[in-house]
Amino acid sequence: MNIARINPGSFRIVKTLLVVIILTINLSIHAQVIGSWNFTNTISGIAGSFNTVSSADFSPAVPTRAFNGGTEYYGHDGWPTGGIDASYFLSFTLSPNAGYALNILSMNLRMRHSNTGSSGGSGPTQFTLRSNLDGYTANIATGSLTGSYSNFIITPGPAYNNLPTPVTFRIYGHNAVMYSGGNNRLVFDNIQVDAIGLILPVKLLSFKAITDHNNVVLEFTLNDLAAMSHLAVERSADNRIFHVIASEQETSYQSTKLYSYTDHLISGALDRAFYRLRVGSPGGKFLYSDIVKVKITNTKKTLTVIYSRGGLNLRGLLPGSSQVWIYSCSGALVFTSRLPDESFTHTLSNLPSLTKGIYYLKVSGKNGVQTSSFLSE
């Protein structure tokens, strides 16, 4: 595997099988129908494998709704002769199952107005599609209606991808015309909604951190991981600001894998650390794992550090301290220097220019390791 490492460490992969679900991310595999309504003597819909659908029905303001010949469904009377009246519509809802998300690609609305009466029929001559995502304010699509059926293929756009909550669509009929002998009707033959893919949940089965001598070993198990998913291990010293210390892009689908990363820096730079895992889908969505805290016990933090533009003053050095290292938050080594023998205090005056942020310091020698941190402002 190709791994981008921020500080020394390594990913190892071991196949395993676990059953505890902690984290869910939605990824697409292949196209499918996630909702259809054929109005064959029913307004109930047919859902996909990982979602549910409501009935498709007219709003209460429409006075009459009925089936015609058992193959089509209409709403009769009330359709406005002018623009949209928010009380007159047909609506339907799609809801993802727990742990899944809707990933809507397109929908096909097969509809018309009444073909009764003179001059080609009566009823709404225009329709508008809106949804609850913005409170039914923006037009997703509009179209012209006649007395003959038309298939309106609509692509809602990126706003309708990766939706973890239900979405309701409303189809408004408006600009109705009435001719002699005609009926003011909006008529539906079929509605179908397609998804970009079968939406599977990526599961983080476990995530743990183990101290191993002077290292911290992080192990996490994932299953149903799609190709091109992105994994990143992040670390923090204060449980607030996290930095990526290693990342990985999975090149093929993985049913179940155990990943292991060893953080060699921490034991010499901190007395505690917080870790989390970020998992991103190929579509750019991502979620975080729970945070794991690790206490580092193999350090002696008795060192006082005072930083100023004139240098870095070290006080309370252990006898025999011989080398100092300074690391950035991301784990990059920014400075190292030898220390004079048997010195209890020392000022580092030849530091490079440090950008704003927290830095970690490690001092080692024959009597052990000391650590501290300081802020460059």
Rank of each mutant, 00 (worst) to 15 (best):
residue 118 S to L: 14
residue 128 T to E: 10
residue 199 I to P: 02
residue 205 L to F: 02
residue 192 Q to T: 14
residue 139 N to S: 15
residue 126 Q to T: 13
residue 172 Y to F: 15
residue 164 P to Q: 15
residue 134 D to F: 00
residue 180 S to F: 15
residue 182 G to R: 02
residue 163 L to D: 01
residue 119 S to M: 08
residue 148 S to R: 00
residue 176 A to P: 00
residue 207 F to A: 08
residue 148 S to K: 02
residue 162 N to W: 03
residue 218 L to I: 14
residue 196 I to K: 01
residue 192 Q to L: 08
residue 139 N to V: 06
residue 179 Y to N: 10
residue 178 M to N: 04
residue 213 H to I: 03
residue 210 I to N: 14
residue 159 A to Y: 10
residue 142 T to Q: 12
residue 142 T to R: 07
residue 134 D to L: 04
residue 185 R to V: 02
residue 131 S to A: 06
residue 212 D to Y: 01
residue 184 N to H: 08
residue 140 I to Q: 01
residue 201 P to I: 04
residue 156 P to N: 13
residue 204 L to V: 07
residue 179 Y to I: 00
residue 208 K to Y: 04
residue 133 L to V: 10
residue 205 L to W: 01
residue 203 K to I: 13
residue 140 I to Y: 08
residue 156 P to C: 04
residue 146 T to Q: 11
residue 160 Y to F: 09
residue 119 S to P: 02
residue 154 I to W: 14
residue 155 T to D: 05
residue 207 F to W: 03
residue 156 P to S: 08
residue 137 T to K: 05
residue 169 F to A: 11
residue 120 G to I: 02
residue 125 T to E: 14
residue 194 D to H: 09
residue 204 L to D: 06
residue 172 Y to K: 08
residue 194 D to E: 13
residue 208 K to V: 08
residue 147 G to S: 07
residue 183 N to G: 07
residue 155 T to M: 05
residue 202 V to I: 15
residue 139 N to P: 06
residue 167 V to W: 15
residue 167 V to M: 12
residue 163 L to Q: 07
residue 120 G to T: 03
residue 136 Y to V: 08
residue 209 A to T: 09
residue 193 V to A: 10
residue 153 I to Y: 13
residue 193 V to N: 14
residue 152 F to G: 00
residue 170 R to S: 13
residue 130 R to M: 12
residue 174 H to N: 08
residue 185 R to H: 05
residue 200 L to P: 01
residue 214 N to T: 03
residue 128 T to C: 10
residue 186 L to H: 04
residue 168 T to I: 12
residue 143 G to Q: 14
residue 186 L to F: 11
residue 192 Q to M: 10
residue 126 Q to G: 04
residue 124 P to Q: 04
residue 170 R to D: 12
residue 130 R to P: 00
residue 154 I to M: 12
residue 121 G to K: 03
residue 144 S to L: 10
residue 218 L to D: 13
residue 132 N to F: 09
residue 123 G to V: 07
residue 195 A to K: 06
residue 174 H to W: 12
residue 197 G to K: 07
residue 126 Q to F: 14
residue 158 P to E: 00
residue 182 G to K: 06
residue 169 F to Y: 07
residue 142 T to W: 02
residue 194 D to Q: 12
